[in-house]
Nucleic acid binder design. Sequence first.
RNA 1: GGCCCGGUGGUCAAGUGGCCUAAGACACCGCCCUUUCACGGCGGUAACACGAGUUCGAAUCUCGUCCGGGUCACCA
Length: 551
Amino acid sequence: MNENELLAELLLPGIKNTPDYYENLYPLRNLPEGARVTRVAPSPTGYLHLGTLFTALVNRMIATSSGGVFYTRIEDTDKKREVEGGIADIIGGLDRFGIAIDEGFISGEEERGAYGPYKQSCRAEIYQCYAKELLKKGLAYPCFCTAEELAAMREDQEKLKVRTGYHGEWAKHRNITYAEAKANVEEGKPFVIRLRSGGDESRRVVFEDVIKGRIEMPENDEDFVILKSDGIPTYHFAHAIDDHLMRTTHVFRGDEWISSAPKHLELFKVLGFKPVKYGHISPIMKLDGGAKRKISKRKDPEAAVHFFAEEGYPTAAVIEYLMTIAASDFEDWRKANPDSDYRDFKFNPKKMSVSGALFDGDKLNDVSKIMISKMQSGDVYAALTDWAKEFDGEFYGILTENPDYTKKMLAVDRDGVKNARKDFAKWNECKDYFSYYFDSLFTPSYTLPERVSREDAKAFLSEYIKTYDPADDRSVWFDKIKALAPALGFAAETKEYKAAPDKFKGSAGDLSGVLRLAITGRANTPDLCGIMSVLGFDRCASRINLYINNV
RNA sequence: GGCCCGGUGGUCAAGUGGCCUAAGACACCGCCCUUUCACGGCGGUAACACGAGUUCGAAUCUCGUCCGGGUCACCA
């Protein structure tokens, strides 16, 4: 054995496999030409974040559009920051949003697929095997620097105004001898393993980013850590090994990773792997004061995907919105294919924005309103009660006390209508929106429409209630209003009134406004005829009397 | 500060040297339709960060300036 081999044996004595073993264990995938293998690799340091959902959606679409595979991998190499239940929340969240997972973690604890384990903490031996190989070849070495020494080194570098980091002459242990290393190990000193970088800062590394195009940067020359002192790899090393062994073809990840791409490329080269293709996704931004910034977990409620569930946005609406930011040609496609499943959209990474999109709540609302307007009452009932059950127990009780009544209410201006209303974007708006259907939520309003006097309102209402029949269809219903108009000095037809505004106090439309106020306490509601029919005669009559007595 | 990546209406964006008098969507405003409320239809306000250069011709190519974002860990 030469010195490098002795060193490798000294540092990682338990590792017996060689890289060949893993190369054979995880053969190339048998997929058609052009199929892309993508993944999302969340770190369970928190709950599902909008950016993670977005990244997952993009990777999912890339795989789907190419007939490939999309898998999940848990990057839990930082045990200090890990959050209990994080994996279940993240994977469960992806599932709730309809992101299908072909392979990897499919729930908090189950995984499937032939390229696992899919959790990095279970792959220590694999990483160590490759690290050992690098050690044997002299491409890596142990470093015994303490955190304090490293910090002191950084201070010195800052004072001297030289580039900070563990590189070149600053790489203290770069030329450590086997004997020195052995002595340190025997003393029980902790060590990390660093890459012996062959890069040169004055040379350029170039790669073709699938989203951003050609990117050129100085080569990495830093002897960065590949194995931490606990034997667990850093992100960089785990990324190279895992994405190679799991036979990933394309890595779409946040663009904060661009700056470490030279490290990754060097790792692929040194390890003898074919590099993956990168696509760096611009982050979703948020306007803070006057400044744009990346959406942040701490400051922005909408950063945590949980926010959308609480607000009651249908998951499909959030996905639809995300698709509009992800692909600039998605909205055109949607216009041409209004009823297609978004998964049928051919996703082209070239159509992804190179700059970060500002999160636009107005746009989300619009997308969501359209989505909800297309749902039939039965589906709305299911989704709304599901939401209420979790987030508004009182409303849930009211909604489900009489399901038939609630469903009839939801059918007004919805079922059998070509273009349904777009009145609400999320379920938490419904309690207020539908309040007048329920006596316990109803708030009367004793105001008057612009052109109707108190006396006329009372006179109209007391006559009207004598003729009202919930069985009336829309035209009969309005004819009855029209019939009462002339006697009160109102025009029966809107056109009549418009033609000669001086001859009338207003039109039948104004009278129906009084009715609306009396019945619902609102100036704006869906089709009043339909509402009254759901409410029933008694409830309508009592509200009308209440109004007459109080206005 | 070094290194990257960006900069077209308030927002998302189309645009790859002449089809640009710059598309579309959201938001906003107006009009029309209308049996109320909506839906819908039609229209409007509003943009190429700035300065040089290349060219017959620049939103598009080059350089500089400015502005914004990201990154410089035994975190991912």
